[in-house]
Design a protein around this nucleic acid. Structure first.
Lengths: 201, 201
DNA sequence: TTTTTAGTTGACTGGTCAGTTAAATAAAGG
DNA sequence: CCTTTATTTAACTGACCAGTCAACTAAAAA
């Protein structure tokens, strides 16, 4: 116990940072340990496998996103639909900062891991899927409130929330592949269109 | 030249299949060669590196998608907006078949590779980005035609096409992480909402 | 027929992969 | 104090990684 008592936490933090900046398969356990100033043997004292570390990283990233983006966006100090707009603003600022500080847009940590690992690891796929489903909820709540207030005509709030969140994932992927955070701002503006009923002949 | 003359093509086909079903970093050159019935030395006769193979795979996948989904969807035998709906129908059927035959929804081959590799390989990122940009074009063309016909009020067709394609990427990622092709059908229904102007107070 | 070129083969490199093990050390509890 | 438990350390495993190389074969060009 020469090292401090937060070894496990340092490992998660290092993995979160390294995997988010590249990919699960590109980052090795050794590299994570070096970055966390931990010996590999210690790593396997705290985690049965690299895969279990990934699940812990997903959990921590979910907490981070909920605290730093979701909760701040959906606070009820402004009208419900404005909260959705604020969500895209905060998302944009987060990725713009990342782009300025690191040179890269990293996209969505859940979408990244889900896209890479869903066909290889069922536990990771399920974890990402549950995070996605949970992330729809604040959108759904805002939409229901907007309908109640009369800001929106009656819609299927659950389906619409899912559509908006799927759109968000697409936007983040697009921003990553173009390495351009501005896409989040430009495409985010269209998100509320998914809330209106459309009548095509 | 004991083996047939299509060695290079067999390598690309094997890589396309294997990488699409898992991920770039999960599939090794040796595994690709085994699957293509080619010795590893031959591989490096045709490709300078695994990365260059990935670029060739992206090119071939792009051709496939254009021929099998894009062109079939956007043929002008039906009205322009109906072509966009047909695109999601074909996309759904493709992934439903995949799910039935393999047990898994694999998502978008470009989105998968872009999400995994964009921060690690600039050439791959640029290739995916250019495929994305090219894929917006048939949407844009259909939208412009719809505006011309009076099916749609005047909109920014380029921005809307980009929004619809980003939404498509999000849908495919969501379908992959939930391993559920039905999401493509259910969420695809909302795509045309991105074509209408919205007026929120 | 001889030379050149394209393609094939299998053995090989050095490095890295995830994961293991046994012993050492430190902290906590009695 | 002594025992138990948690944690750390370094050396290790065997498999696999992308990529190299020189020798070989066959077809095409001269």
């Amino acid at each position: 116990m020469q090292a401090s008592h937060d070894t496990r936490q340092r490992i998660i933090n290092a993995a979160q940072e390294l995997i988010y900046a590249s990919s699960y398969n590109e980052v090795g356990v050794q590299e994570i340990c070096d970055h966390a100033r931990v010996k590999k043997g210690s790593f396997y004292h705290f985690f049965p496998s690299k895969r279990d570390l990934a699940l812990a990283v997903l959990e921590q990233s979910h907490t981070f996103m909920r605290d730093e983006i979701i909760n701040k966006s959906f606070h009820d100090d402004i009208p419900p639909l404005a909260r959705i707009e604020r969500f895209f603003t905060l998302l944009y600022e987060f990725h713009k900062d990342s782009r300025e500080n690191t040179g890269s847009v990293f996209g969505c940590p859940f979408g990244n891991l889900g896209g890479e690992m869903s066909t290889q690891d069922e536990d990771i796929r399920n974890k990402v899927d549950s995070i996605f489903t949970a992330s729809e909820k604040p959108f759904e709540k805002a939409l229901a409130e907007a309908v109640e207030r009369g800001d929106l005509q009656a819609i299927d709030t659950a389906a619409t929330a899912k559509a908006i969140f799927a759109y968000t994932e697409g936007i983040m992927l697009y921003a990553k592949t173009s390495n351009n955070p501005e896409l989040i701002r430009e495409l985010g503006k269209h998100a509320l269109q998914l809330t209106v009923a459309v009548n095509m002949q």
